[in-house]
Design a protein around this nucleic acid. Structure first.
Lengths: 208, 208, 208, 208
DNA sequence: TATGAATGAGGATTCATTCAT
DNA sequence: TATGAATGAATCCTCATTCAT
């Protein structure tokens, strides 16, 4: 207890070391999830790959689920960072422009780490981290809905809640499917085409 | 001919016994998948729940995957049966009508066993039964595309392949999300509304 | 009971069928032992390969061990048949001749079915059929010893029991090792050489 | 240097703990092999008997085979240690002396742990450790052959390769059979007699 | 706080054998 | 007597987690 003030640098060093350890663990987990899938991602394996002892792993994460949850969280943070910055000026744009933006951003988000995205999307429901995913899609939903409210004049629909659900779901599904299941066929050209189509789809719908 | 009556019943009895065993196993697997998810669906558990010995389980299914595959297949058979019969007359209908039909059928299909559908969709990619799922969605895709080809006059789009991808994905996502994640909020009224919206969405898009 | 006299032909037919069934089973067991080893030779597999139902298998053989025992017995019968007929005139031969004979016969016996012989030798101790093997080697031993007794004049050893043990063991080991572990290197020439060597070995020993 | 005393014991303690675990496992495996044979030597049984958890067993040995292989290796190490030290001066001895030595050493080797030797010899071929056994008998073979080369003057045979094969096989078989199958009848007297006989057998053969 | 040895419940699968038909 | 469906004990092995050092 007396030593704490004296060891601030050391403490910081320690904190940094902790931070590095945690990062290593999350990174290793992500890598293993991508490479071998959820089932092969054993805690012992994660410890080994991350260069952290299994004992330390459990000092930082109380369970395997906690680790996977951290991976999910990190991935979603990255996505939301992209989304937020990319959508900064969207509120000032006209509907056509804005929708294109929304779709383009969704594609970008999926392309951050498509393979990780896929594992998380497919295998993670089990992690009991649905809340996190909810939170995530809820924020997405909010951003969209907020835009719609500001652009009411251009819209031909009344129920903005319903319209937001329809649009967000649609955009998410189209980009998800396109990026994940048709990655090879998706040249940049075709991707542009797809973005156009999706934007036209929701724009037409919203104009009524 | 005199002997047949003697052996036929026996043989049939035997076949029936086998058949019942297999059915029990598939049914139990489905129940457990729904109730506890893929990971908890151990072969021992399935055997226990189905009232079949673990030995018999392995007599009929060489692995856990084979069991889950059988569940998938059964579920898809049921869905496709619904889909095919419901879409029998769709080719003669006008675009608006037809799209409403497609959406309504998708909703019906999802409602056959929504919770099972969810597990299969979310947790099953690993089963190596992606082919089956592919086959399934490919048939769906085909039905839709075939309709579009017959209704070209009403369409404002050129690339039917792309348009089919967009529409099928969209319809699937909307109904899936609606049925699974918003089941409680979905009164029949709101469901009707959703069907309308979805139909309008794709119809507008296809008219160009 | 009344039918027995009447059905003699049928009975014989039946007996023949039984006999064929039993033979099929033994043959299948032998084949599987040779091809896949003791561990892969499951009773179900044997039934399948032999074209006999598992139920019938257990009607003829009370256990897996009984089946393997039958294989052993059959193999030893064949060997002893060879040995007996080949050694018929040995008692009249001089020591040198006789010893060459003994060795040559041992080689022949091992060559009847070397692969089966190997499995039986290596994996069968477990079958609790040691008695059978004992019986077998005891007969071998007897034949040899009987010869020695008749040829006492030529011998330079007193303890015929001990001498027989030494010679029989030696001959068996040399032929066994030669046939099984050096099969590929054993051209007929080299085999002749080996027979000469082995014969010279025991002859020299017996002459004292 | 101040810290080392702190960590060294810990590390050593750890190593010792591991070492003890491994030793326990090998020892238990050997005991079970001797007592019940290969088939009854299940990994769970080995774990139980050794007082080690099944998990630890698999931490040190990746499979049942690996365990048995370790038993084989340990046994062969012990044998070769005996053999090497006992044969140290053999190269300077005359043929008669040397052959007696070879036979006596073989007997000693078999007596180290006759029952274990038997199981390993009879039931282990399957372990895929044939190489080890080969290595082992090859070293034996080498030692013998090397002696023969040095003692060429005394020999009446040309093909030392063939002669070595004959002698090593013979000595091995005689001692093996004597120790294993006739243990009870083998008083020390009779054992002496047997050694004499075996030595005489090969000596006579080698002198030509 | 770090380490990694140890744990053991639990999971997939096999196979000798039984027994109803 | 033949059949083959059914049985379940037993086997090998994994992995999340704990705990002594």
């Amino acid at each position: 207890m007396a030593r704490k003030p004296l060891t601030r640098p050391r403490k910081i060093a320690t904190q940094e070391r902790s931070r590095a350890t945690v990062d290593n663990l999350i990174e290793a987990t992500a890598r293993i999830l991508v490479k071998d899938g959820f089932d092969k991602a054993s805690t012992n394996r994660i410890a080994e790959v991350s260069g952290v002892s299994i004992g330390s792993l459990y000092q930082y994460f109380p369970s395997k689920e906690a680790l996977v949850a951290a991976v999910i969280e990190r991935h979603q943070q990255q996505i939301m960072q992209t989304v937020r910055s990319e959508l900064a000026q969207v509120s000032t744009q006209a509907l056509d422009q804005a929708m294109r933006r929304f779709v383009a951003v969704a594609v970008e988000a999926h392309r951050l780490d498509p393979r990780l995205h896929r594992v998380l999307a497919e295998q993670i429901p089990r992690v009991g981290k649905l809340e996190k995913l909810q939170t995530f899609s809820r924020e997405n939903f909010s951003l969209f809905r907020t835009y719609l409210e500001g652009a009411r004049d251009e819209l031909g629909v009344d129920d903005l809640e319903l319209a937001s659900f329809v649009c967000v779901t649609t955009i998410e599904a189209l980009t998800h499917n396109a990026v994940l299941h048709h990655a090879k066929e998706l040249t940049d050209d075709r991707m542009e085409a797809l973005i156009d189509e999706a934007a036209r789809l929701v724009t037409g719908y919203l104009k009524g």
